[in-house]
């Protein structure tokens, strides 16, 4: 479903070249639920932007659902759902309801199918109260649920989430986690998510990838990750992995 082959992306910053991602190769099969970890500045967001066609890779090959994201961007857009926890992709000045309606039109979702999906999403993510509120007036958690809904209205095959639980309270976090698990289990949607909340990883991800300085530092199941060192908690394991990779 997702395939990277020695993919790299560098940025020119004041004549120097910053390698945000380099020589990165991995595969994600359909139906997997993968956690994508790494310290700040490791290259997680850059990878995700390459997956959805926002950034063109400067080297190597990226394929999502068999498509080259930067060249077949609009075709891919119908099959991928993207959420950036840091920033909304909804229309800032429009009520949530209008944003969803625009999405229906842009993605050409059948009206009846759309109604059913929207009702279900509004019910599970508890959004009914905010449908008439302009996006700029929503709180972070409310907005995040709006963004999640928007990313799922066209029933994508792949869902990529960049810090979807950032700044959420315990209850919202739990409801979003439960919801993601359901989407993955019932629809078979492939999910790739980045997070700094290790609870997300423990609860959700069967497979974990750790990236640092643009390179893959670990790739395996959650159990394998825990077995890499004698420490007990996931925090300790990850701390060790981050510091080791940093050297």
């Amino acid at each position: 479903m997702i395939e990277l082959d020695r993919a790299g992306r560098s940025f020119k910053v004041k004549r120097a070249l910053v390698h945000a991602v380099r020589d990165l190769s991995f595969r994600v099969e359909p139906g997997e639920f993968v956690g994508y970890l790494g310290p700040n500045g490791a290259g997680k967001s850059t990878t995700i932007k390459m997956l959805c066609g926002i950034l063109t890779p400067t080297s190597g090959r990226v394929r999502v659902a068999g498509l080259d994201p930067s060249r077949r961007r609009t075709t891919l857009a119908r099959r991928i759902g993207v959420v950036f926890g840091q920033r909304t992709t909804l229309w800032w000045d429009l009520p949530l309801k209008d944003s969803f309606e625009l999405i229906r039109l842009l993605y050409k979702v059948d009206r009846k199918v759309f109604r059913e999906r929207l009702d279900e999403l509004v019910e599970t993510l508890d959004l009914a109260e905010f449908l008439r509120t302009p996006v700029r007036q929503l709180s972070l958690g409310q907005r995040m649920r709006g963004d999640l809904t928007a990313a799922l209205l066209h029933a994508p095959d792949v869902l990529v989430l960049d810090e979807p639980t950032i700044g959420l309270d315990v209850i919202s976090k739990n409801s979003i986690r439960a919801f993601l698990l359901r989407v993955n289990a019932e629809r078979g949607t492939t999910v790739l998510l980045t997070t700094h909340d290790l609870g997300d990883i423990e609860r959700l991800c069967r497979r974990v990838m750790v990236i640092d300085h643009g390179r893959l530092a670990f790739d395996g199941s959650l159990e394998q990750l825990m077995a890499t060192s004698p420490e007990e908690t996931i925090e300790e394991v990850v701390t060790r992995l981050y510091t080791r990779a940093g050297q």
Binding site: T74, I80, R87, T89
Partner: peptide
């Protein structure tokens, strides 16, 4: 960086930019 939002939609970025607001 809000141009990101246009790039994830299945529509021309030119149309989305020109029609914005």
């Amino acid at each position: 960086g809000t141009f990101d939002a246009f790039l994830i939609r299945p529509a021309s970025t030119w149309v989305q930019t020109t029609v914005d607001r």
